[in-house]
Design a protein around this nucleic acid. Sequence first.
DNA 1: TAGATTGTTAATCGATTAACAATC
DNA 2: TAGATTGTTAATCGATTAACAATC
Lengths: 222, 222
Amino acid sequence: MREDKRDTQVIKPIPEPTLRRLPVYYQYLKKLHNEGKVDFISATQIGNDLNIIPIQVRKDLEIAEATGKPKLGYSVTNLIKCIEEFLGWNNVTDAFLVGAGNLGSALLGYNGFKEYGLNIIAGFDNDENKVGKEIGGKMVFPIDKLPEMTRRMGIKIGILTVPAPYAQEVANIMIKAGIRAIWNFTHVKLNVPPNVIVQHENLAASLVVLSKRLRVMLKPDE
Amino acid sequence: MREDKRDTQVIKPIPEPTLRRLPVYYQYLKKLHNEGKVDFISATQIGNDLNIIPIQVRKDLEIAEATGKPKLGYSVTNLIKCIEEFLGWNNVTDAFLVGAGNLGSALLGYNGFKEYGLNIIAGFDNDENKVGKEIGGKMVFPIDKLPEMTRRMGIKIGILTVPAPYAQEVANIMIKAGIRAIWNFTHVKLNVPPNVIVQHENLAASLVVLSKRLRVMLKPDE
DNA sequence: TAGATTGTTAATCGATTAACAATC
DNA sequence: TAGATTGTTAATCGATTAACAATC
């Protein structure tokens, strides 16, 4: 009889593919909004522009708890708000990055993550040439400082861009300091306790998908 | 009656998840091989070490056309060879990278791709401060040179790391020059003819998955 | 031989797609 | 009202997992 889900406790796992498509819709809608030409948009239109079949758009939006109006479509501003809320982008999450090499520097310098709810506050490295300097507008601190700063600031997300041999060691430091989610750009399979989430960003894997597809396309036979 | 598949023409689409796991096995096996302690390994053992259930390991290896010996397991060297062959890593594919910013530089400097069948030969950029210099041991050329060099060298893979506003334009240049596969690191949905493959590397999407999971974990309710 | 492990066929599970009634 | 579009329930499809016979 209770009308809301407060106590139903239905754990609805969100499909990862949906989660990965939401930022795509978001970006598209933002652009649309900035152009300021349309107030309402249909799933069909979104699908056409994004190469996604309309029914999937509807499903994804449903999961993001967005509602539209039959015949009219979805309100662009409302949709943007829904996605932001669903993904928790209204309150940006702070993160630390460890390993200010090339890739780490690229990530430090890329401010676009802020739009997706992530704010990289600072970098950490042990290289004397980097410590104390700014990279991409972010200060680089010695790794020694990581535990105390993480605790003090209540940081929960760590980005790991150190060379492979140090990956596990640095991850341990992160976890000990209270970090609960690690975005892992190394090739190392991290051992972490069950209450820590690891997202393994495997560029090699993507590369494999691409090059295999190309190979199949270029020489489908033999 | 014919015993091989030469004329059966069964187009067996390879599951992308499998394709993404193969490099993981590969790396693991390589390490194992270098340690030189074991000649044969079972799917169970691989699964244990990699946090993948054994049956999935077996299935993946089956797809990669590897065979083992009951009771004994799979030959490590043979497995490595099978994966290399299946993914076409025996002949490294050459690639050009356009856009030598932070991310582009990181990729140029990262030589690990060579192990996965990709060899980034050179970078291209329009920034005078970069053209003519080396980044990560790779020469950076002006974009003007891209078409001729691509044609002359028969390059088929292009890596796109330019700022978003130039993405489509540069992609067009690539395609016109004969590139058939684009590894797209920009946020732009590229329009390409059907005979060109685009692999969209969406870091924001990964980030969304991570941060949503963290959010669910930290406050499962409300 | 006995037992472990592969190879293969079947069952399950979850995401995608289809169908269609509800509705503005 | 008529028609387009949403919202929801059902069907399909493909990847994962299970079961088990074959085999070294």
